[in-house]
Design a protein around this nucleic acid. Structure first.
Lengths: 195, 195
DNA sequence: TAAATTCTGGAACAATCGTTCTTTAATATT
DNA sequence: AATATTAAAGAACGATTGTTCCAGAATTTA
């Protein structure tokens, strides 16, 4: 037998939870905050998502799948890798320029807040790092083969370098970056990659 | 009249508080944690430092003064700016390679956790950013004058670039960086700066 | 030594934390 | 329509939160 049907959409609720955790961080988001922001009752929240930590784990998994997929697709369909890398950088912070309360990147925020104190979450953050590094390495290799990018460093080293700069930008974008900083960083990264 | 004398050293207590906030973050550090770790009573803690937030503000100010001073001094006394920049980068993360629970950088951690939600602290973080940017800019200008660093970009742009890479490294050092990533990032930064 | 002052230890506070439980409402199957 | 099942609403739980208060210990000054 089926019983009463849910009055809310689980994916929409997960989206909202992701947004709230992204804005406030894990510890600063209370169960009360979640109940209010998702617009569902305590019992529904706990029946659907388990406890706060399980909900957070689903939220970062949700976030991470979406974002990695987008980056990988941009790289796969690119025939101008320099331009694509610029686009990846600009896109990853441009939203925050419009916001009164910038959010940065949920994976970076989580790396800082929880990686040293939660092993399962640490592994998810590291898996995300690996995915991004592999995507960047593929992009660079592709660019090198198309003779668009430098061969003076290995694709792996350049991928680490790009990842590091993207991380830096994501911290600054949460902490109110000036536009000029973004421009400078993008230009210098690209000029380090150029042939 | 003088009354009973303190049984603890205020600076030592502040050092310990700084270390605890640095490791656990602001929200995840409870008043109980502080009482235990500093080894003084609740009443002494509150009488000496006000409340938890005031103590945190003093801690990050303490931290920031110490670190900026060290970087500025290294730059001022340097006659090989490339080597000094390498040293600044390596020093800022090398401690964490030895630690079971790496701490990263308290200012970066704070930028992520509190800047979007605490105006006073946001301004302290931004002041720290300005100090570091100015120090880097001075280093680059000096290196350019000594004909050690490239003139293909402005000192200001290169400072933004260096700052961004340092921030990225500090995130990764809290989130268990591989040594190779540090090496790659340092080498690529230096090669972007070289003449 | 008495008085004044300051610090310490820990009990106590209201508020909030994450979570569970109970009751009632809604739906599907028989 | 009766029964079975699931969801929703919100009261209630013990634990922990940050903070205050109070009684007593320690020290200085008079």
């Amino acid at each position: 037998m089926m019983g009463r049907v849910k009055e809310f959409n689980e994916i929409e609720a997960l989206d909202k939870a992701t947004e709230l955790f992204w804005t406030k961080g894990y510890n600063a988001t209370s169960a009360n905050d979640l109940v209010q922001f998702l617009g569902l009752s305590r019992s529904s929240l706990y029946a659907t998502f388990g406890d706060k930590r399980r909900l957070f784990v689903r939220a970062i998994d949700h976030y991470r799948a979406r974002n990695v997929k987008a980056v990988v697709k941009m790289i796969e369909t690119s025939d101008d890798l320099l331009e694509t890398i610029r686009e990846i950088f600009v896109r990853s912070v441009s939203q925050d320029f419009l916001r009164k309360t910038p959010k940065g990147c949920l994976m970076v925020n989580t790396a800082i807040e929880l990686v040293p104190h939660d092993e399962e979450i640490a592994q998810m953050v590291q898996a995300n790092e690996q995915d991004l590094l592999h995507a960047f390495e593929a992009a660079i290799r592709k660019g090198q083969e198309l003779d668009q990018l430098t061969n003076r460093h290995t694709a792996s080293a350049l991928a680490n370098f790009l990842y590091n700069n993207l991380t830096g930008l994501r911290v600054s974008s949460r902490a109110r970056m000036e536009k000029q900083a973004l421009k400078d960083v993008v230009e210098l990264c690209l000029s380090a990659l150029r042939k």
